[in-house]
Amino acid sequence: MLGLSLALFGAALAAALAGIGSAIGIGVAGGAAAGVMTEDPNKFGSCLILQALPGTQGIYGLLIAFFVLNKLGLLGGAGAVDLTWNQGLQILASCLPIAVVGWYSAIWQGKTSAASIQMISKKPEAMGKAIILPAMVETYAVLALLTSILMLMGVQVG
């Protein structure tokens, strides 16, 4: 059963760490958004979009966690597949890219979002640039997600 535990530990890390990162990132951006909206409540729409940007890492983490659960046969009534500890470790390793990169990139993306929110408070017409700057950070979360997916697909179980 060690294999299953290791694999579940990986899924938990992916969902938890990336989720923590997104929560912090959105929190940081939300603080900036609230500050800007005290001056101009009409910016709610654009602030909300910028605040939501660091939220994707949490979703990527969740996605990988579900991917693992699906692979382990824990979703639906089929029952868990048998794993050797080695296979479990492989799955755990596959979860690490999105867990770690999701965690950190969401925090930094949140900081960039907060700065972008400050920017549109002064220059609302620069919305396009304001969206792109945080998206630059997200690139690495997307790459990590891709790495995790490809690694997971490579791991043979059952």
Binding site: T56, L63, F67, L143, L145, L146, I149
Partner: peptide, 16 residues
């Protein structure tokens, strides 16, 4: 490669 990753993302979220 983000094109694959994001397309994959929406498909898997839908699946979930």
């Amino acid at each position: 490669s983000r094109l694959l990753a994001l397309g994959f993302g929406s498909a898997v979220i839908g699946m979930v």
